[in-house]
Nucleic acid binder design. Structure first.
Length: 1164
RNA sequence: GCCCAGAUGGCGGAAUUGGUAGACGCAACAGACUCAAAAUCUGUCGUUCGCAAGGAUGUGCAGGUUCGAUUCCUGUUCUGGGCACCA
């Protein structure tokens, strides 16, 4: 009987499905074990052999745990929101929901063929509304929580509100709090929420009108189209992960993650201890605050460096340096942080013309700006100590800044020395101190003088949580009066509306912004009638403050508000504003009217202006929204001192939102209108909207500021759904809560989590943070999601090449398509093979070609071309398959390894294969697996050809799970042979089963009593398989199985008592064949639930051993003796040994080392 | 640039606390069976000297510790991975 794996696998898969063999119940009576894979993103390309590696490993482990008696949760689902589906939709117009569905179906079909033990009843998709309802709900928990710095944990924001209302805070009293407008209160609360909204920089591409991900930006231009990309500030959502920095760091210590993984996370969090310190700017009111980890070097500071984006840059730059600084800023603008970090060696910077004063000795220190200082870290400014920091050193050298040496001979003038072991010199009160000790002394002094304080900094920043994209979870947030209001829980899920176009919305918003009907929330339709933040209902928001609202020049009042002059924020105020705007339009001054006629009629440079159009709570005279240019005409109303203050406050406010303001006097309008228009044109041509300033127009605040209720149009990023999915598997169908607490208490942490290293800092950190928040809020009972993490390595592609010979300027019309075999190509490259050889081959192919006179002068080029790895057997090309591969290769001619030609029959006789040795050998290179390199291998093909069991075992046999390795299909035969050999222990391929249930007794069936030798093989195998499986060493486990089967075959063991135990061991690895043979043996129950055989050491006990005997550490011979021989006995035997005697040459050994059970070493 | 991991035959890899380097498999070679092929089985298989017995040498490179180092230490070269809008 043959091993018909196709039938066997189909039958068993069908049976398991029908019997729900993988159904998992939440059974608290049994011990639990949770094995989880990182769920895949269902890409359109389907699976290649690299994907299942981790899945097979986890499947083996969970099946193994099941045999060990655990209730094993081993689910699978899909991370089905994401950019590729949206990109595909943009290109093809197909809705992501549709393509996602199709892709998932393909994935599942492919996975099922491999025979995984998933309970598909627990499948989750992140893009399923029933799932993302709870993603949105959890987002709201984050939104409604803050991080309590005393308790170091998340608490409901209502606690904070109560505290503010009763006790106030550092910056305000309870009375002040209660007097704040609702908007002011909300702004303060927003600064504490764990999910919060704020302005942040994004990669903005003007040409595409959209925000781009970092990897969509290459060298400052968009990956698609190559359009310029700049940094732009936009309102974004964030998670306050920085609050959890310390806990995320501490948590690592108890986790069973690889060191490199922990290191990556530590590095990412990037905790550093240091001090913040203020330097006075000479002759100005400003201070530069720097962050340093080395306050001990304070007397070595030779200059300060600000990040180019630092807010002080414009304020302290001297008139002489202004142009240089502006030029430098525009150079910096288009470069991303990553580029800036990548090109550290390129030194650039610019002197601001300003000087700071060293707080200790009053020394004047030049202030520079340079891109090596990043705005986002520390204070965005550093004190540069060239003798101690290499970057500062190079900078100083490059710009000829004198260097102060404070470390004596430790500094050699050639490079900086970051030592902490030097005794300080030239360092005022720190002189004579060891640097290490001086740090604390300096810190104390800084704090004592009140010029700074100790400060812990983190490289990690708060996690950007919004994307201006379509295919993600919509935020359960609406905006009203500039306040973010969460939807009520009963309005969840907020379903992603259907769109027809996937292009960006206006002003850099996502595609959802195009859906006007969806964005504008109809209040009457909402169940959340009052639309107030649910957790701050006890807010005694004082929104009816007696503010004079008119922001127009004419009736501007005198009260200040928010420190900016007037801000229109409440609906009530907004109504007034709009009324005023209308009024103003009807009642323009003569100058305004003149200006309007020009602006409207001229339509300057194609830009459209509006007059009396409300912007950010103000009504400017004229505004070009596209360019964010505001034109104000100073009328008779702007003479008073107070008005001037308001004007500047207003300008400041508007600048923060990215607006530029130019002012003209009425006289200018009347007398020199052409000049005015020229100025406007200049202003318009200056720089684009996007390149402008650090502030920016905020579409969201803007849209929601008008009293209307507008939906948030951003969507959540990919990691939103994946941050908590491991909990949903536990209780996937619960529509009352995200996961019942009882259920999560039972399944608890994921015991083993398997996935790639690419998620080391993204998904894993976010997921850990969410878990901690959920724990703090009492939603779950553990604060780390994954107990143990196993990283599967990448499987690389193994590319194959053919070498095409190209003859330049050949006389013939149609050049022949000729390929040169690999080793000949190498010889040709090394000039060991000349063109004459190639020539002779071409002449052999087509004698007529000789007529071409200049032929001997022709030049040759040989191009390596990727060839489909699937039509290459090892390195030998399947020539016929190649000719059929692509139409242009139909008539391909090969110069084979032995130099003979292989041409298609149509070329005439004598040009076919000349000998058996005429093989075409391909070149090999290891590269990333990708379609374009024709090196992908589809698991389906392999399963079809060899079966799922072979495929599973072969993937494991390739090498350690954690290691990256190239795929090579060739070796799969060996594993397949092993399974067939196993099969033959049970079945004679001709005579049929070795063992049949009709035979009278087990002993007769298989030839007698079980022998010690057989038991020894079995128990050694049990021991090794158990150990190897436990430590995820699946490759050695497979080899153990091979050894076991080889040995059983050698001793001709066909006994049920032995073999059925082997089958149980094998079940996790090759479930189908194990089930089939288990069944053939006449066993009743399922092998899936068999009991893992117990290892008994007594079968492995040995009494004697063949000890290796070394002389001076070099192995010379072996010696059989009692395993537990004493030192004396051993020495006696060793000295009596012939070989040892020979090496001793009559001398006495200096020493005889005897390690019991290991070896013997004679030292001469 | 910074951080991390790795380097063992023709190839994938094994060697679990320092103790017989190369398990297991692929490829290759020789042989058996066969008209032949496939399948299967047997043997050889790091390099090198030698008819052999047996030696020398060998885990990226250069050193060190040790009776003994793939394993520990120092330096060095190379390769792979990561460095926040990625599946």
């Amino acid at each position: 009987m043959e091993y018909d794996f196709r039938k066997i696998e189909q039958d068993w898969q069908k049976q398991w499905k029908e019997r729900k063999a993988y159904k998992v119940s939440n059974d608290p009576a049994k011990p639990k074990y949770y094995v989880l894979d990182m769920f895949p993103y269902p890409s359109g390309a389907g699976l290649h052999v690299g994907h299942p590696l981790g899945y097979i490993a986890s499947d083996i482990y969970s099946r193994y745990k099941r045999l060990k008696g655990f209730n094993v949760l081993h689910p699978m689902g899909f991370d089905s929101f994401g950019l590729p589906a949206e990109q595909y939709a943009l290109e093809t117009g197909q809705h992501p929901a549709e393509t996602t569905k199709i892709n998932i179906a393909t994935f599942k079909a492919q996975l099922d063929k491999i025979g995984f033990s998933y309970d598909w009843d627990r499948e989750v998709w992140t893009s399923d509304p029933a799932y993302y309802k709870w993603t949105q709900w959890l987002f709201l928990q984050l939104f409604n929580s803050y991080f309590c710095n005393t308790q170091k944990k998340a608490r409901p924001i209502s606690d904070l509100v109560n505290k503010y209302a009763s006790k106030g805070a550092k910056d305000f009293t309870a009375e002040q709090w209660n007097a704040f407008s609702k908007k002011e209160q909300e702004e303060i609360l927003m600064k504490r929420r764990l999910a919060f909204s704020s302005f942040g920089e994004v990669n903005w591409c003007e040409a595409l009108g959209t925000v781009l991900a970092n990897d969509e930006v290459v060298n400052g231009v968009s990956e698609r189209g190559g359009h310029p990309v700049v940094k732009k500030k936009m309102r974004q959502w964030y998670l306050r992960i920085t609050s959890y920095a310390d806990r995320l760091l501490e948590g690592l210590e108890i986790l069973d993650f690889s060191d490199s993984m922990k290191e990556m996370q530590k590095n990412w969090i990037g905790r550093s201890e240091g001090a913040e310190m203020k330097f006075k700017v000479h002759g100005s009111e400003f201070d530069v605050e720097v962050y340093t980890t080395r306050p001990d070097t304070i007397f070595g500071v030779d200059f300060l460096v600000l990040a180019p984006e630092h807010e002080l840059v414009s304020k302290i730059t001297s008139i002489e340096q202004k142009q240089a600084i502006d030029e430098y800023l525009s150079y910096v603008k288009s470069r991303s942080d990553r580029e800036r970090m990548a090109e550290v060696k390129q030194i650039s910077g610019c002197f601001t013309g300003a000087y700071a004063l060293n707080p200790f000795d009053g020394k004047q220190i030049p202030i520079w700006i340079a891109e090596y200082v990043l705005a986002g870290y520390g204070t965005g400014a550093i004190m540069a100590v060239p003798c101690g920091d290499q970057r500062d050193f190079l900078f100083a050298k490059h710009f000829n800044i004198p260097i102060t040496n404070i470390i004596g001979s430790y500094y050699n003038g050639e490079e900086a020395n970051p030592t902490k072991d030097a005794i300080l010199e030239n360092s005022g009160f720190l002189n004579g101190l060891l640097m290490k000790d001086a740090i604390a002394v300096a810190n104390n002094k800084i704090e004592e003088l009140g010029i700074g304080k100790r400060k812990v900094n983190y490289r990690m920043r708060d996690a950007g949580f919004s994307r201006q994209r379509y295919w993600g979870e919509p935020f359960p947030i609406v905006w009203k009066d500039g306040i973010a209001i969460p939807l009520d829980e009963k309005d969840l899920p907020l379903e992603l509306p259907h769109v027809d176009k996937y292009g960006p919305g206006p002003d850099g918003e996502g595609p959802l912004a195009n859906l006007t009907d969806w964005v504008n929330v109809d209040l009457s339709a909402s169940t959340n009638q009052d639309l107030s933040p649910s957790s701050s209902q006890d807010l005694t928001a004082n929104s009816n403050q007696d503010l004079t609202l008119n922001p127009s020049p004419k009736e501007r009042g005198t009260e200040q508000h928010s420190g900016y002059g007037y801000v229109t924020s409440t609906a009530e105020e907004w109504k007034h504003t709009i009324e005023f705007a209308k009024q103003n339009r009807k009642d323009p001054t003569a100058e305004e009217e003149m200006m309007w006629q020009e602006l409207r009629n001229r339509n300057i440079d194609g830009y459209k202006f509006r007059r009396q159009h409300p912007v950010e709570g103000y009504i400017p005279d004229f505004v070009c929204l596209e360019k964010k240019l505001i034109i104000e005409i100073d009328g008779a109303y702007h003479t008073e001192e107070e008005q001037k203050i308001f004007d500047s406050a207003r300008e400041k406010w508007l600048n923060e939102y990215g607006y530029t303001m130019i002012r003209f006097s009425n006289t200018e309008i009347k007398n020199s209108l052409p000049n005015v228009l020229k100025k406007i044109t200049e202003e318009l041509s200056k720089d684009t909207d996007a390149e402008k300033g650090t502030g920016s127009h905020s579409p969201l605040l803007w849209k929601g500021a008008g009293g209307e209720v507008k939906r948030e149009t951003s969507t959540m990023p990919g990691y939103a759904g994946s941050s908590w999915y491991f909990l949903r598997y536990m209780d996937p169908h619960n529509d009352k809560t995200f996961c019942d607490r009882k259920v999560s208490d039972y399944w608890n942490q994921v015991d083993v989590y398997i996935g790639g290293t690419e998620h080391a800092v993204g998904h894993l950190l976010y997921s850990r943070m969410w878990t901690k928040v959920m724990y703090d809020l009492g939603l779950i009972g553990f604060d780390e999601p994954f107990k143990k993490l196993v990283n599967q390595g990448m499987i690389q592609g193994s590319s194959r090449f053919v070498y095409r010979v190209v003859v330049l300027h050949i006389g013939s019309d149609e050049p022949e398509i000729i390929f040169l075999s690999h080793n000949l190509y190498i010889k040709w490259q090394n000039k060991e093979l000349d063109n004459q050889f190639l020539l002779s081959k071409i002449i052999e192919l087509d004698p007529h070609i000789v007529s071409s006179e200049n032929f001997e002068q022709e030049e040759f080029m040989i191009n390596p071309i990727h060839v489909d790895v699937n039509i290459v057997d090892g390195v030998e090309l399947n020539i016929d398959a190649f000719r059929n591969w692509k139409p242009e290769y139909k008539e391909a001619v090969f110069i084979c390894e032995d130099g003979t030609l292989n041409a298609p029959l149509s070329f005439g006789e004598g040009l076919g294969v000349r000998s058996n040795d005429a093989k075409y050998i391909c070149g090999v290179e290891t590269e990333k697996m990708s379609k374009s390199k024709y090196n992908t291998v589809n698991p389906d093909d392999l399963v079809l050809k060899y079966g799922a069991d072979t495929f599973r075992m072969y993937e494991m046999f390739l090498g350690p799970v954690e290691a990256s390795k190239p795929w090579d299909t060739k070796g799969i035969e060996g594993v397949h042979r092993f399974l067939r050999k196993l099969w033959r222990l049970f079945n004679d391929e001709i005579k049929g089963p070795v063992w049949t249930s009709s035979a009278p007794s087990p002993l007769e069936r298989a030839g007698g009593e079980v022998t010690d030798a057989e038991l020894k093989v079995l128990h050694r195998t049990i021991k090794r398989i158990e150990e190897d499986t436990e430590r995820f060493s699946f490759n050695t486990a497979v080899s153990t199985f091979m050894i076991c089967v080889n040995e059983l075959a050698d001793i001709k063991c066909h006994k049920k008592e032995i073999l059925q135990n082997v089958l149980i061991l094998l079940t996790p690895y090759a479930p189908h064949i194990a089930a089939e043979l288990w069944h053939q043996l006449g066993n009743e129950g399922s092998v899936l639930d068999a009991m893992f055989p117990a290892f008994d050491a007594k079968y492995l006990v040995e009494t004697s051993k063949e000890y290796p005997v070394s002389i001076n550490g070099k192995l010379r011979t072996n010696l059989v003796m009692e395993l537990n021989a004493s030192q004396e006995e051993a020495e006696k035997l060793v000295l009596a040994n012939e070989v040892v005697q020979k090496w001793l040459e009559g001398k006495q050994p200096k020493k005889i080392i005897y390690v019991k059970g290991k070896m013997l070493n004679v030292v001469i």
